[in-house]
């Protein structure tokens, strides 16, 4: 369960994936329609879609010959405690502090 949670937060930590979630939030879209919103190569977008689907933030729906992606609102709610981005903010700051002080030379 803890692992699953972490995966969800890793998924939303990426700006492209957050944009995909916002796009799909307003309407279900095909992979092609989603990819058309990005400058990145189609396989890169496919990879992002795969990650979002694997952690159940997106769901696939067959509609005729097309597969539509739509948002899994239930899963999105799980992310709603918002704690992880706050933790990451402090983790980034402290990592920086640590890196700076490891190279610190005291003035004599």
């Amino acid at each position: 369960m803890m692992n699953l949670r972490r995966d969800v937060f890793q998924a939303i930590a990426d700006p492209t994936r957050r944009t995909i979630l916002l796009l799909v939030a307003s309407q279900a879209m095909t992979a092609g329609a989603i990819a058309a919103n990005f400058d990145t190569a189609r396989p890169t977008v496919s990879k992002h879609l795969q990650i979002l689907t694997e952690c159940e933030l997106l769901q696939q729906q067959q509609n005729g010959r097309e597969i539509y992606y739509h948002l899994n609102a239930l899963k999105m709610k799980e992310v709603a405690d918002f704690l992880e981005p706050f933790r990451q903010l402090w983790d980034d700051r402290f990592n920086k502090l640590e890196a700076i002080m490891k190279n610190y030379k005291p003035e004599k």
């Binding site: 939303i12 930590a13 700006p15 957050r18 944009t19 979630l21 916002l22 796009l23 919103n37 918002f82 704690l83 981005p85 706050f86 990451q88 903010l89």
Partner: peptide, 21 residues
């Protein structure tokens, strides 16, 4: 509200990107 701030900022960045597009 303070805990939500970094998440909201992340979403804002995504919003800005959509607006640019």
């Amino acid at each position: 509200q303070m805990l939500r701030l970094p998440f909201a900022q992340g979403i804002n960045m995504a919003h800005n990107r959509i607006q640019n597009i």
